[in-house]
Amino acid sequence: MQRTILRDLLVLLGVFGLIWLVFSLFSYPEDPQLISIHKEEKLGEVYVDLILLNPVFGEFDNSRVDSAVRVIADRLEEGLEDSEYNYHFVVFDSEMINAFTVPGGNILISTGLLAFCDTPEELAAVIAHEMGHVEERHVVSRLIKELGIEILTSGDQYVIGEVSELLTSTSFDRKQEEEADLFAAKLLETASIEPRSLATLFRKLGRRWTMN
């Protein structure tokens, strides 16, 4: 009797353990590898154009600012090893202190953020952080999780509008933010930029939010 009891216990543990394992591994296709970099860049082009149509993200045309951002970004890109992305930086006119990532290596930075950064190193820290989200493919993961891969790649106009809304309104989870911070710290160090500028900027942002 004891042997059959033990056998039944093993059967129960096996069945329920298998259910756990199977549904953990095949629960939801959120793997960013399901979308190629090329496909991501194509999607990114559409989303950037659509986001910039929104009056909140006003057009900002200043070649001096663009080249200053480009110089910082170039230095960071030199520190990247084997990146598959061609980065594009867009500065938009807004008082909001904001920077966000759009699929395909597109990083959008507000003029409010540029004004908030006291030093070029602080701006480099923000860009490095956003590059972390790009390289870790957090944006694609988030979109797949929110919408599902079939919907995301459908090309439907309504979906494109929804995605643009998601990209500008929702944030990453804490784990992804920590990964981006870690990536940024390493990248800043590789590019010989003081990594502490990242912490300095976050402290300033924290103080700002507390005051508000």
Partner: peptide
């Protein structure tokens, strides 16, 4: 602020079963 996929989702299905 962690996500609810992966092992959590598997566990949820297992508990529901």
């Amino acid at each position: 602020d962690l996500d609810f996929f992966g092992f959590y989702w598997g566990y949820l299905v297992m508990v529901a079963t």
